[in-house]
Every structure is written in structure tokens, then in C-alpha cells.
Nucleic acid binder design. Structure first.
Length: 288
DNA sequence: AAGAGGCCCTGATAGC
DNA sequence: TGCTATCAGGGCCTCT
């Protein structure tokens, strides 16, 4: 489930391949995604050149030379696969690209063809989407619904204090609310709260200044570390190759229910509870 | 205004 | 073995 670190990894590898390449073909196999892909998607991006690939929160943005933008959200199960063209016989051969060497047989929704390879978007659960934005203004308008991402310079103690201290809802849901902090999903919310020593059920307005400071520092630190480790590879990416992310090995609480709390001198087990229909893992002893 | 809850979707897994 | 139920969860929507 790509959160900020996973989208960042996808961005880096995709950019190396497709930046300054021209789109010479588009094949849409299945328009049914989170939002139905517009019928004119193919013709609108055909023959355009990619001039930048970047990330904002959990969104990937492909900027084209006619000043339009492809906005991509991976939802729960969206992945890209790179297929290289073999010179001799003009066939395509599947090469590793981010999560998987093995091209799934089903759910290959969109193919984008370049000179020597094609990129395939696969999404079994269809929670992801592609959206075309006609100009920068519309793109920014769309993205402005999101709050600051943790790597933003403006994401500091005062920003968090201002956005947390008056809220009655629990801190975990505050972290997951993209209008307040963007880019954090369920996995990293669990990890950040554990390392900050905060009970995920605790209402925002009950947090003290030290806890808010912890959230500021540790959000940046954990997301950064996850990017360095190549993101987290779980569940949907389980058939992945050696290029899979390694951060799942660093999980302290996520999916660690009934295991010993990793903190020294703590003999509690990690507890699994449900908050707003999301699995939540924490240590009752270390998180208050 | 803010928060709670429902919904979309498929594949893996648990239980009988 | 084969069936059914449950779970995974991001973002948008509606209702209060």
C-alpha cells in the first residue's frame, strides 16, 4: 500500500526511465479504477514528451511537454511494471521494475509505450486512479486539498501544535487525515506513534508539547529511513524480487501483534485494536 | 466546522 | 477439498 516512501521510490526509478521520453502509444485495457478513466485519456497524452516526474504526498505526477499533467494515486494495490522491447524480434520482455519481476496476468489496466519499452499500471483492487490535469493551476488546486507533508519546511512544531491541540479526535486519525498531514498511511502512523510513545487513542487536545515535538521529529525521521530502505514491501508485493523494499524488517509494531514489545525493559506484548476500521498496533505500556 | 461511518474493490487466508 | 466469511485499507462522500 504505497505511502509517501513507496511513492518516492517509484518516482525515482520511473523518472530515470521515462524522463524526456516521448509517449508513442497508449493502450487502455480497463478504465475502471477508483474514478473511471476518461475516454480521451489516450489521445490526450499520445505523442507528448515527459518533461518531469515528481511526487507530492502520495501522488505521482508526470509532467508533459504541452504543460498538462498526469496525476497518479496508487490506492492500495497499484504498481508499475517496466517491459523492455527486444531489438531483434520487436517483442517485449519483462524486466524488473520496482516491486516485481513477474508481470501479473490480470489487472493490467493501462500501458504507456515509449521507444524502447512500455510501462504498465496494474491495480487489482482498483483503489488507485489516473487523472489528467489541463494546466498547472488545476493541478495545484487539486493538490491544495492536502495538508503539508512531513518533509516540508513549514511542517514544524507550530504547524502541528496549531492543527492538533484543538482537535478532539484521536491522534492516529489526525495523522491519517491527509488534509492535515499528507503522505502518512496506516503503517507509518502506527510506527510513528510507537516511536513517539503516544497512545493512538489519545485525543489530539490531550497531547503535551513534548509529544507534539516527537511527532514532528519522528515523522520526518521514520519516513526518511523508510525511503533509504526502499520502502515497505508487504501483502500485495509479496511475490516481489530482490528489489523489494526492506523497511518491513524495521517494523516495531505494525503487524507485530502478540510479539514482545521491542523496547528494552518492557515485558508487554504488542496489542492489536481497531480504530476507524483500520488495524492499529501499539504497546499499552510504552504508549500513553 | 468537525467528526463518525459507509462505500468502493479483489485476493489471500481462516474456519468449518 | 471446497465452500463461505473475513480482512486488508485511502480517499471521498453523506449525515449529524
Amino acid at each position: 500500500m504505497p505511502e509517501l516512501p513507496e511513492v518516492e521510490i517509484i518516482k525515482r526509478s520511473l523518472k530515470k526511465k521515462i524522463n524526456f521520453q516521448r509517449i508513442i502509444g497508449v493502450k487502455v485495457n480497463n478504465r475502471n479504477l477508483r474514478f473511471k478513466l476518461k475516454k480521451n485519456f489516450s489521445e490526450k497524452i499520445l505523442n507528448k514528451k515527459v518533461v518531469n516526474v515528481y511526487r507530492k504526498a502520495k501522488y505521482l505526477i508526470i509532467s508533459l511537454d504541452n504543460k498538462t499533467f498526469i496525476l497518479i494515486h496508487f490506492g492500495m494495490s497499484g504498481t508499475f511494471h517496466l517491459i523492455k522491447k527486444r531489438e531483434k524480434d520487436n517483442l517485449f520482455t519483462n524486466l524488473s521494475f520496482y516491486q516485481s519481476r513477474n508481470l501479473p496476468k490480470k489487472h493490467n489496466h493501462i500501458e504507456i509505450h515509449f521507444k524502447n519499452f512500455k510501462v504498465i499500471y496494474n491495480d487489482p483492487r482498483r483503489f488507485g486512479f489516473f487523472k489528467l490535469l489541463d494546466n498547472k493551476k488545476n493541478l495545484e488546486k487539486y493538490l491544495s486539498k492536502n495538508g503539508l507533508e512531513p518533509f516540508s519546511k513549514k511542517f514544524n512544531f507550530n504547524y502541528l501544535l496549531k492543527n492538533i491541540c484543538f482537535r478532539s479526535k484521536n491522534i492516529k486519525n489526525i495523522l491519517l487525515d491527509q488534509r492535515i498531514v499528507s503522505g502518512i498511511g496506516n503503517i507509518y502512523a502506527n510506527e510513528i506513534l510507537f516511536r513517539s510513545g503516544i497512545d493512538p487513542n489519545k485525543p489530539g487536545n490531550k497531547l503535551n508539547k513534548k509529544e507534539i515535538k516527537n511527532l514532528e521529529i519522528l515523522s520526518k525521521k521514520i519516513l526518511n529511513k523508510a525511503i533509504l530502505k526502499g520502502g515497505s514491501t508487504i501483502r500485495d508485493f509479496k511475490h516481489s524480487d530482490g528489489k523489494a523494499g526492506k523497511f518491513q524488517n524495521e517494523f516495531k509494531v505494525y503487524s507485530q501483534d502478540n510479539k514482545n514489545c521491542p523496547n528494552l525493559n518492557c515485558n508487554y506484548k504488542i496489542t492489536k485494536i481497531n480504530i476507524s476500521n483500520r488495524s492499529t498496533f501499539y504497546c499499552k505500556n510504552c504508549q500513553k
